[in-house]
Design a protein around this nucleic acid. Structure first.
Lengths: 167, 167
DNA sequence: GCAGCGACGTTCGAATTCGAAGCAGTAGGC
DNA sequence: GCCTACTGCTTCGAATTCGAACGTCGCTGC
């Protein structure tokens, strides 16, 4: 390709982009406070517990967790260490693959999750959903889902060079 | 109030909420890489420069910047220090209020912003807007704007206690 | 089998982040 | 004019975050 067409965003796009970032920043900030007060959890920790609690088996591999919450591997190691020290999860080598580590939520983890969840939901309800009608929420979900799939599918920018580095 | 009505989110709401968080996490991650490569800027730094560049005067007060990008004051002090050391902004005491500090973008700051912006826009276009039609984008903006206003208007959860801390 | 390549998780060091405490400067009541 | 409360920013210490380097394990071709 010669060069990209004048890469600019029209005002509507810019507004949507900025508002998206702003809304999530604000929401995340508020939620973080609530989680800290209610259960001394950081947002990442909550996300991890929530994902584990949602899983049928109550467990996930480290890498899948990191990917799921968009976190660095080393960061996840650190957080998993904290959660384990707090007795909220357990780490064990995978049975089938000796390399990978399986993280499993404990009963204490589920209990804490259950304790924190109502307040969390209340905050999200009050801030994010309060100004939105049920139809709005459906529309929002319908708009964002394809975006998520698209970004997930997109090669992570650095992969391009990696894939064809061997010419 | 006796107690809140069963605070639960229906599956659609949950999906919308999770997708919202996921999309912005992914987007932010991708953008962060691009900014790092293109101009050695963190996302916060870019946001700050962008806000300053957008301002008619090219400047803002520290507090307003921190509020705008949803950042802690101390964090902003740190970042402003970095940007100033890099010659991208200048800090000066406000003329009218001796307490506050006015941050102003320099020509070098504008130049860097201009240099980084096309790539930034390209990433956002390719990831966020690629799966969305112009109508979708309008809808998204229309959905999120009220949410932003609502959250901005909401009392910051901790303000209640601060206001009445003196008994 | 075994050499080489790739995936998984951890360790390490450096940079960033936040809240609490502190230091001015400002506004209002008297 | 002062005293008190409040705002604006910075400093400080502790916690978190990431990428790079590392050790280990699994998979392929031979």
């Amino acid at each position: 390709m010669p060069d990209a067409p004048p890469p600019s965003l029209d005002p509507v796009q810019l507004g949507a982009y900025f508002t998206l970032i702003e809304v999530t920043s604000l929401l995340r900030h508020a939620v973080e406070q609530q989680l800290r007060e209610a259960g001394n959890l950081s947002y990442v920790q909550f996300q991890l517990l929530a994902r584990l609690g949602d899983s049928p088996t109550g467990s996930h591999r480290m890498t899948d967790l990191a990917d799921g919450v968009v976190y660095s591997r080393s960061g996840l190691t650190y957080q998993a260490g904290l959660l384990e020290k707090a007795g909220l999860v357990v780490r064990a080598p995978s049975p089938d693959d000796e390399r990978s580590v399986t993280v499993t939520i404990t009963d204490a983890g589920r209990a804490l999750l259950a304790e924190v969840l109502p307040g969390h939901i209340e905050v999200v309800s009050g801030l994010l959903f309060e100004p939105l009608s049920p139809a709005d929420v459906r529309a929002l979900a319908a708009l964002l889902a394809p975006v998520r799939d698209h970004i997930r599918a997109a090669p992570p920018r650095s992969a391009a060079s990696r894939r064809r580095q061997a010419q």
